[in-house]
Simulated scan of single mutants.
Amino acid sequence: MKLPICIFDAKNAVLCPQCENKVESGEITKADVDASIILAKIAKKNTEIENFTMHSCKEFQGNFVLSFAKNDIMAIRQSRTLYRTLQEQFEGKIWLVEADETDKKFIEDLFFPTKILSINSVWAPGGIQKTKAVVSGRWTPRFPIDTEKVVEIVKNVRNLDIEIEFEDKR
């Protein structure tokens, strides 16, 4: 398993001086440390997680944006029990995104499994970039993804202003 902190630190929930310096310098966050400890705890019972690579974790308002390697995300999405195990260990909602992806792929990951028809960016006067995502289908009260949270996540993690529309108007 590859984590932002040492495996030994993650398994023992105590940071070594080197990892402590990473936190103090801002190279990694407290959310990275907490998520690493949680994954190490889950890996004790679930050997599939032993091969995972978590690049980072961003946390705000009870949302945890976990950045994994592409193959790891596919494994989690294919196994509902693995996803539930992860979700149960975090205090808030987890969002899985691929590490080092484009803004477009990042937004698509947040909407998984819903299909995104298009993502367009325009530059408004004053050098402000606006992004618009068009989601397949129609919005209903039972829509599984909180679009307001997606807007907040994109703003906080990628610093993009995003507007979300649905293919079929309400």
Rank of each mutant, 00 (worst) to 15 (best):
E152R: 08
V134R: 10
C57I: 03
A133V: 01
G137W: 07
G127R: 00
V134F: 10
D100H: 15
F60P: 00
P141D: 11
T140L: 04
T147G: 06
G126E: 02
A75N: 11
E165D: 07
V150F: 04
V134H: 08
V65E: 01
L117R: 08
Q129S: 11
L110T: 02
K58C: 13
A99C: 12
V135P: 06
L160E: 00
T114S: 12
V122W: 13
S121N: 15
S118P: 03
C57K: 06
L110V: 01
E148R: 13
S118A: 11
E101F: 09
V134G: 11
L96C: 01
T85C: 11
I153D: 01
F106G: 01
Q129V: 14
D146L: 06
R138L: 11
T102Q: 05
P144H: 03
T140G: 06
F143W: 07
P113Q: 09
N159F: 15
M74P: 05
C57N: 04
T81I: 11
P125D: 13
P113R: 07
P125L: 06
I119F: 09
Y83L: 10
N120I: 14
K93E: 11
A69N: 05
R142I: 15
V65T: 04
D146G: 05
A99N: 09
F106T: 04
I128Q: 13
E152A: 11
Y83R: 02
A69Q: 07
W95F: 14
E91L: 14
N71S: 10
N159M: 11
S121P: 09
C57E: 04
L96G: 00
D103S: 04
V150L: 01
R138E: 10
K130G: 15
S56R: 12
F64C: 02
G137P: 00
K132C: 12
D146V: 05
E163W: 05
D161Y: 09
Q87R: 14
T131N: 00
D161R: 14
I145F: 02
R84Y: 10
K149M: 14
W123E: 13
W139L: 14
K155A: 12
R80V: 10
V151W: 07
V151C: 09
T140R: 08
I119G: 09
I116G: 10
E163F: 08
V154W: 02
N159W: 08
A124K: 14
R77T: 01
L160P: 06
E148C: 11
Q87M: 14
D161E: 12
K149R: 15
P141A: 11
T140M: 08
W139S: 10
F112A: 03
S121F: 11
V97Y: 03
E108P: 09
F60Q: 07
N159E: 10
V122G: 15
F64E: 03
L82T: 03
N159P: 09
K155G: 08
M74L: 04
G127F: 00
L117H: 12
L110W: 01
F68L: 07
E91S: 13
Q89K: 12
V65F: 00
